[in-house]
Simulated assay, not measured.
Amino acid sequence: MNNQAIASPKAPAAVGPYSQAIRAEGVSINISGQLPIDPATGKFPGDDIESQTRQSLTNMKVILEEAGTDMSSVVETTVLLADIADFAAMNAVYSEFFSEPYPARAAFQVGALPLGARVEIKAVARI
């Protein structure tokens, strides 16, 4: 994929593994929010944010593989957190799944997530 990071020195620099913006070409794949459900068990892999983030992103990865692409085609993500205090730990796991140019990203604390999850992540990919 030929994604190009856009970075303006007149805007704040990214403070994590994401780009200010991404210029992307191709067809969009819009991935619904992925809860951290292990498809083999139907349950969360653990109660901690690290295992839940890893599972959500693994779910995203296999969906992209089914579409014939990979995580490098992701141009934008939205991360929903049950507790914004989990941001740094989520961010550490998130950085294992993406490389430069990082996708554009927004992250929010929400009142609650389905099934009591700690994280849900949605994405837009281009192929």
Rank of each mutant, 00 (worst) to 15 (best):
E50R: 15
A123E: 02
S51K: 14
K43M: 12
A13W: 04
I37G: 02
L115T: 03
E65F: 03
M71Q: 12
S95P: 06
F44T: 01
F108E: 07
S72A: 13
L57V: 08
N59Q: 07
P39V: 11
P12W: 10
I6A: 08
F87R: 11
P114Q: 10
D70K: 06
V27Y: 04
K10W: 13
A13Q: 14
P114Y: 09
D48T: 05
L57R: 04
A112P: 00
G33P: 01
R126L: 11
S56A: 15
P39M: 06
S56I: 04
M90F: 15
A107R: 02
I6D: 01
T58P: 00
R23N: 12
A40W: 02
A92V: 10
I84Y: 14
D86S: 09
F44P: 00
A107H: 08
A123H: 03
A92D: 14
I37V: 15
K10D: 14
I31H: 02
G33S: 10
A123T: 07
I84T: 03
A104F: 06
S19N: 04
I29H: 12
G116H: 12
D38H: 06
M71C: 06
L115S: 12
A14L: 10
L80E: 06
Q4G: 01
Q34P: 00
A21R: 10
V27G: 01
L80H: 08
A117T: 01
I49W: 03
T78G: 04
I84A: 14
S51E: 13
L115A: 13
Q109P: 00
A92K: 15
E66C: 03
V62T: 15
D86A: 02
V119H: 03
